[in-house]
Amino acid sequence: MNGPIVDARGLHKHFGALHVLRGVDLKVAERELVFVIGPSGSGKSTLLRCLNRLEEPSAGRVVVDGIDMLDPRTDINHARQRIGMVFQSFNLYPHMTALGNVTLALRKVAGKSRAEADALGRAALERVGLGDRAGHTPGQLSGGQQQRVAIARAIALEPRVMLFDEPTSALDPELVGSVLEVMRSLRESGMTMIVVSHEMGFARNAADRVVFMDEGAIVEEGPPAAIFAKPTHERTRAFISQIQRH
């Protein structure tokens, strides 16, 4: 039995006077899909961003794939290749083509030749259904397509775990489906995923575990059926009934 891929313990994060994370423990097993839900400002995104150290935790420990992320001796740029991240606002590089976006880190960080990187990049675009859009710039793509390119950019590096930070929140409703479909196929290929999102339908039928956060702490967690059908905490209940009213 392997240990967890992601093992975060006692995470705290302060932004000035704001105590955003108040002692979060999160373990994620290989091939697991963990869904993080909670009201805005509950610390979900900060938690994700602490896992790849885009945010420096104020206290705690983060081990990803056996690498101590907070150890000053860790080569963070190398470690981050194992952790793909997808952002709410896509953050594609607008001055590059889709293929350029996907291959930049392959060339600069993974040290691939241009030919190798292009081949891997095209394969990644193929996986998100955009093989025919390699030469398009982000401005020429729809929001859903841009987010899929962003997913391709992350998976091209063959990460051990993928972090999704509200991947569909900036999309028009009719474009959400295509992104969720790509996420579903990623899941089927065995990718370990941590997803912060309000797509409860997706959580219900794709997640292994749902984690409910409020005020910087994990309030409760469990299989989606249990969390959605009979949450044990009042705050979870209130949040879920509020979400489902929409």
Binding site: N77, Y93, A105, R153, L157
Partner: peptide, 22 residues
């Protein structure tokens, strides 16, 4: 936008690489 640096850094680019390439 700051998200550009974050995206680049999240794929493993160093601060300088993110600066020069992105």
């Amino acid at each position: 936008p700051g998200g550009q640096i974050e995206a680049a850094r999240s794929t493993g680019l160093s601060r300088l690489q993110a600066m020069t390439s992105v």
